[in-house]
Design a protein around this nucleic acid. Structure first.
Lengths: 100, 100
DNA sequence: ACGGTACTACGACGCATTTCGTAGTACGTT
DNA sequence: AACGTACTACGAAATGCGTCGTAGTACCGT
């Protein structure tokens, strides 16, 4: 329960990334992260689902390589992997964030 | 069996578009369409699934607004809705096509 | 040590999606 | 009219996904 694994930048797959973004709840998370200046604890997100469902979605995002999560006390701080995403799939993140 | 309905450009939803792109078979179709100079009949696609499954995926793409399909004899010619997509979600299609 | 907070693991349920085969329709050709 | 081609509709099976509750772990504060 101490180490969270993340895929490397070169390991990001377009299929996985698109699938991760294709869920409305996860899209909310990504948008809230994009608008945040600092890292956010999971608990600070405003999501219309239960705690365990949140955990599930954060895990999907992390395993797809969209966010980075690290422990900080009892919390987990999440950040958007902007730079890695922009390098690997230029324009993708911005296009999704601009939408709607 | 004559008229195929397509969503309007303003009716395109980012969730639906991303979900449509998140399937490997459908991504193949989109890529093959992007590389084609002219409209393609469904039969000319090289896909690792059965005929009825192809029909299903083409329908999903059409209903998401990614492709346009029109009857042409016994065939259906499909084209990518590049312009509509670029207007509605600038940069998205290109980013996906560039990936991998 | 105790309690509280933040998150996870697990199992379960319901629903959507992917897949296919079969049967059928529409159209062109002979 | 008869046939072949291209695609669709429908139903069925398998799989996957989103959702949740419960029980549990890890950490911090008192």
């Amino acid at each position: 329960m101490r180490i969270l694994t993340h895929p490397s930048r070169d390991g990001l797959q377009i299929d996985t990334v698109l699938a991760a973004l294709a869920d409305p709840v996860r899209l909310m998370i990504v948008k809230q992260l994009a608008n945040a200046d600092a890292a956010q604890a999971c608990v600070s997100f405003d999501l219309p689902v239960s705690k365990s469902t949140s955990t599930h979605h954060f895990r999907v995002l992390r395993e797809a390589g969209l966010i980075e999560q690290q422990y900080c006390g009892t919390s987990i701080n999440s950040t958007l992997r902007r730079e890695d995403l922009d390098r690997r799939f230029p324009g993708l993140l911005q296009a999704v964030l601009n939408a709607s």
